[in-house]
């Protein structure tokens, strides 16, 4: 049993044949070779697999690939601009040492971007609550929280600059 799905991944249309029981995360990793999205648990709690589907963060281990048909998926590989620079949130994680082993990092960054998109100027408490679906075992969250606050500020500045440039 298999079916054919078409979706947009990191801005590119892809069409693949998948087994219905294929999870989105396995589709990304096995079919598309996008191994930046990780699997850290099997109970939908750790958040290592977070990607954006139609602009919202979701746990790709708890979604079938077929459910993403006709959707736009963004993974960690698609977050940074093509010019080799980092997204402001990625840059903030680097600057503030918001990662150690790097395994939870892709999911953490994707969650953080979604969080800040909804709430551009979050408090520390809001960041901590907003990241409850992402488990990190290395950093103690201290520098992740710092990074997300800094990343939020950088994203606000980028937005302001973009708005100013548009005028």
């Amino acid at each position: 049993m298999a079916c054919t799905i078409t979706l947009t991944v990191n801005g590119k249309a892809v069409t693949r044949e998948v087994e219905e029981r294929t999870l989105l995360v396995h589709f990304l990793r096995e079919h598309l070779g996008l191994t930046g999205t990780h699997v850290g648990c099997d109970t939908s709690q750790c958040g290592a697999c977070v990607v954006h589907v139609d602009g919202r963060s979701v746990k790709s281990c708890t979604m079938l690939a077929v459910q993403a048909a006709d959707c736009a998926v963004t993974t960690i590989e698609g977050l940074a601009p093509a010019d080799g620079t980092l997204h402001p949130m990625q840059e903030a994680f680097r600057e503030h040492h918001g990662l150690q082993c790097g395994f939870c990092t892709p999911g953490m960054v994707m969650s953080a971007v979604d969080l800040v998109t909804d709430n551009p100027d979050p408090s520390e408490a809001e960041v901590r609550e907003g990241l409850e679906g992402n488990i990190c075992r290395c950093t103690g969250y201290h520098n992740i929280v710092k990074a997300v606050l800094a990343g939020a500020q950088a994203m606000r500045s980028a937005d302001t600059e973009a708005a100013a440039a548009a005028e």
Partner: peptide
């Protein structure tokens, strides 16, 4: 309910 990602689905 749950976490942000659970609420999104």
């Amino acid at each position: 309910i749950g976490d942000r990602q659970v609420r999104n689905r």
